[in-house]
Amino acid sequence: METLLNDFSVGLFVMQALILLILILLMRKFAWKPILGALDSREEGIQNALDSAEKAKMDMENLQADNLKMLQEARTEREEMLKEARDMKNKMIEDAKKEANETASKLITQAQATIESEKKAAIADLKSQVAILSVEIAEKVVRTELSNKDQQLKLVETMLGEKSLN
């Protein structure tokens, strides 16, 4: 300890303090401030670049997602349109079928009605014919067998029985 205290030189201490102080100030002005500033700004720049790259990537992803979405939409739209068209076609076919059926059934009913009326007419005609025929028969019977009244009636009856209404 004594030798140490003996070795302690006040002059050297003062010189060292002065030199260190001046050195700190000089270094701060000429070296540390610009260096640390440059390092900071460089790191900031790198950070910014990284951030913007990240952002660009995100944008890209968003864009891709948008594209995909649009594609999807287009596809669904096409799908829908196709479906609509198919539906329309089916409907048209259905409608056409229905119409055709209706027309056909109408035609059939008409035909049936016609047939019915024809039949009625025919029956009426037949009836009148039968009447005429019976009158003719009666004439003939009257002409030939006017004498036998019983026989006449019998005859009429049998004939009528034979000729059932068709």
Partner: peptide, 25 residues
């Protein structure tokens, strides 16, 4: 000798780091 050494060290620092700072500038 010690003060001389300190001055030398200070000079070396000023030169070296001054050059680095100038490079950035």
């Amino acid at each position: 000798k010690s003060v001389f050494g300190m001055l030398l060290a200070g000079l070396l620092m000023l030169l070296g780091f001054g050059a680095l700072a100038r490079g950035y500038k």
